[in-house]
Computed example of a mutant assay.
Amino acid sequence: MKTCYLILIAFLALSSSAVSAFDPSPLQDFCVAINETKTGGVFVNGKFCKDPKLVNANDFFYGGLKQGDTSGPLGSAVTPVAVTEIPGLNTLGISLARIDFAPKGLNPPHTHPRGTEILVVLEGTLLVGFVTSNPENKLFTKVLYKGDVFVFPIGLIHFQLNVGDKNAVAISGLSSQNPGVITIANAVFKSNPPISDEVLAKAFQVDNKIIDAIQKNL
């Protein structure tokens, strides 16, 4: 019985340590991010903390979350509001983005490696979806209308497509001050330096000329 108790205690300790290591709770009211180049400073989540005595309301403010330019080839625009835009978000574990869509506009398949996303449609009609990990690669899709909400689990590839004939707008909340974004097509076909045609052609089971054409179009 004593051995069972020891195993249980060890399991709980490891579990709590894993949770804390992933996203520790702040131990102060705030840690407003500041760009600091002096050596010897201490980073908190990759940022230096501003002297609390110098913090003001503007450190927690972002003015004018305006419509993005959707005139590009994808017909969409993402306007992030993360720790770069609001220094006061540092250590708070949240951020958001506004996504604008022209008719038939697409926010292409991408992932957020450090954050789960919850999206609410403000205007328009969106087809959204995400794909589970290997080996299932199961696709979950849903058509969303004004006021609808959908969740994209952390790290999974997902997309949004405006299937209406009018502009669409959505707001997404993310469970990280800096969730990151990896657009799949850009990562695969626009890496610097580029991934070799041999690798990509074999991975996608196509001719090298097709890979070259995709890279050129992107």
Rank of each mutant, 00 (worst) to 15 (best):
E117W: 05
T111F: 06
L119S: 13
G105N: 03
L106E: 00
P103A: 08
V128A: 11
D100K: 01
V131I: 15
K104R: 14
T125D: 01
A102L: 01
G124Y: 03
D100V: 04
T111C: 13
G115I: 11
L122D: 12
V128F: 02
P108G: 12
N107K: 05
G115D: 07
I118L: 14
P108D: 11
N107M: 14
A102T: 02
V131L: 13
F101E: 00
G105E: 00
G124K: 01
P109G: 08
E123N: 11
L127S: 04
V128R: 01
G115R: 03
P113N: 07
R114W: 07
F130G: 13
H110R: 05
L122F: 12
H110Y: 06
E117T: 13
T125Y: 01
T125V: 13
V121C: 07
G124D: 04
F130Q: 12
L106T: 03
L122S: 13
I118F: 11
H110E: 06
S133W: 08
I118D: 08
T125I: 09
D100P: 07
L122K: 14
F130V: 09
F130H: 15
E123R: 11
I118R: 12
H112Q: 09
P113A: 05
K104L: 06
G129N: 10
H112G: 12
S133D: 14
F101W: 03
V120I: 15
L119F: 08
T125F: 01
F101N: 00
L127Q: 11
R114A: 12
L119W: 05
K104M: 04
R114H: 13
F130D: 13
G129D: 09
I118P: 10
P108Y: 13
S133P: 05
T132Y: 10
G115K: 04
H110Q: 10
V121D: 02
H112A: 11
P113S: 06
K104W: 02
L106F: 01
T111M: 12
D100A: 01
P103V: 03
T132S: 15
I118A: 14
T125R: 05
H110F: 07
E123F: 04
K104G: 00
V131A: 14
P103N: 03
L126Q: 06
T132I: 09
E117F: 08
F130E: 11
T132L: 10
D100C: 06
E117S: 13
V121R: 02
H110M: 07
T116I: 15
L122H: 12
